[in-house]
Amino acid sequence: MDAPDDVIHQPIRLRVMAALTALGPDEEGLDFSRLKSLTGATDGNLGAHLDHLARAGYVEVTKAFVARRPRTTVKASPAGRAAFARHVAFLKAIIAGA
């Protein structure tokens, strides 16, 4: 890989992908409020970045009602995991080549 992944490289989206890929593929994913605290983003900002990642096929967003309250859960897709791994490898290659 000789170019960064433009979808992932943006700092908020990068943190989202880092957080989601830290979980195993069989795990539930992270809810919106947890992602908000991990990324330091506002509601609207995080929502826009999640839309961007979802359109790229990197995350799966599930909306449900739990105890009558809306709950948004986000999970990395297999394509998102692969793209994130490639992006990390690209960053490591830059450092190795410096």
């Binding site: 170019a3 960064p4 433009d6 490289h9 700092p11 990068l14 943190r15 880092a18 957080a19 830290a22 979980l23 992270l30 947890r34 991990l38 990390v88 960053l91 490591k92 830059i94 450092i95 080549g97 410096a98």
Partner: peptide
């Protein structure tokens, strides 16, 4: 887009920081 090695190192450090927080939260 070009990324300098110091930017790449900072990005990787940011990733490690987030991963550590998620793992601690799970624990």
């Amino acid at each position: 887009m070009t990324i300098r090695s110091d930017e790449a190192a900072a990005t990787l450090a940011d990733i490690e920081n987030v991963v550590a927080k998620v793992k601690q939260s799970r624990l």
